[in-house]
Design a protein around this nucleic acid. Sequence first.
DNA 1: GTGGCGATCCACCGATCGGTGGATCGCCAC
DNA 2: GTGGCGATCCACCGATCGGTGGATCGCCAC
Lengths: 220, 220
Amino acid sequence: MNDRTAKSTAETPIRLLIVDDHPVVRDGLSSMFASAPGFEVVGEAADGAAALRLAKRLQPDVILMDLRMPGMDGLTAITELTRLGVTARVLVLTTYDNDTHVLPAIEAGATGYLLKDSPREDLLRGARAAARGEPVLSPSVAARLMNRVKTPAPQLLSQRELEVLELVAAGNTNREVAARLFITEATVKSHLLNIYAKLGVGDRAAAVAEAFNRRLLTPR
Amino acid sequence: MNDRTAKSTAETPIRLLIVDDHPVVRDGLSSMFASAPGFEVVGEAADGAAALRLAKRLQPDVILMDLRMPGMDGLTAITELTRLGVTARVLVLTTYDNDTHVLPAIEAGATGYLLKDSPREDLLRGARAAARGEPVLSPSVAARLMNRVKTPAPQLLSQRELEVLELVAAGNTNREVAARLFITEATVKSHLLNIYAKLGVGDRAAAVAEAFNRRLLTPR
DNA sequence: GTGGCGATCCACCGATCGGTGGATCGCCAC
DNA sequence: GTGGCGATCCACCGATCGGTGGATCGCCAC
């Protein structure tokens, strides 16, 4: 809460909050960054709840966040930070390069991740990149992200069926779809029944959801 | 179609297909990669249609693909390659670091992109990474990808409304939703009407689609 | 503690949807 | 050129959905 004016150096230092349940890790990271130029460690926390409190009060630029912690874990903390609109960039700290845990953190709002046992230079560079808002990702995680947006385009539905489904997703009634496609309402229903069979669903709402799941429809 | 056996070197070279409508660019890239160890340029094409034909016949490991071309453009060609199940990794070649054109290419199935005027070493490294299936992305494009999967979580719908919508998206009728939530069908409808009003839609199918668009529901 | 607001809950009714049972057309393999 | 298959097209009917018009409850600000 104390008013600090640290613009003596040419560049304002990057304010760090370190969150890890192991004191040894906290101390190690803290001393590493404290001794590096351009960084200032403004706080440490041992679990997600403490991290949330400190983040709100200290307004750090970058939060180094462990995922596995007692009490509120890192993923929940990141979700909360995002929900609260905290602007700090979150760098996830992982022990191993375990993608499956990292991806949900990215989706929750993390800017990237670092391995705890990365070389000192990598940690400093990653934190600086995060402070600039740049992602810090390994190729394997980046590849997983790409797969999430790639359209497999399995051509499961015919072109006409996809047209019908898109119009239904846009809120058109069967009659409106028919008018737009210059066919009768009965034909629209027939297409819809084929769509239901192909997608394994029983109504239009489930068909739309399944189409998004299968990337047949993509969020705009 | 000629049977080639190029396993004289310790490692099989990376087979490249170069696609660009400018002969100068093709020649430049071709000679650059031909003179580099570990690469073999197996073909060149001047537009998307030719690229498709050659890709199917030559089965290259990596395709260097320009986006702006007369006739079939690069984006369409990438979409077709993905649809046809061609296993070649596609590296998009861009003149400028214009993210907006690159992202759709990534979504269509490209492994990454390179700037045409990148240093020789970057081009070689990028092509090798692509051959291994690793993404080749600049931080700005990676950041855009991340934003696509991040959940803004605007808490637009109440918890109960989201529950109802999820059950509707799963194909439940109003009566089934009511039974699962231990409320009456009338209450389910009331929730749905509130959902429609909040999302600005008029029926359940459009509500599901809009929820995916706003990341209130996410593909599984 | 009172007002206001959103979330949650409920009943009745016309419009729409999904189910059943078909027909025609074009394309590809044999 | 014939068979088979999927895409596209169509009519009738019971079940479900969305629209209208409400009531109650809990929470927060004043």
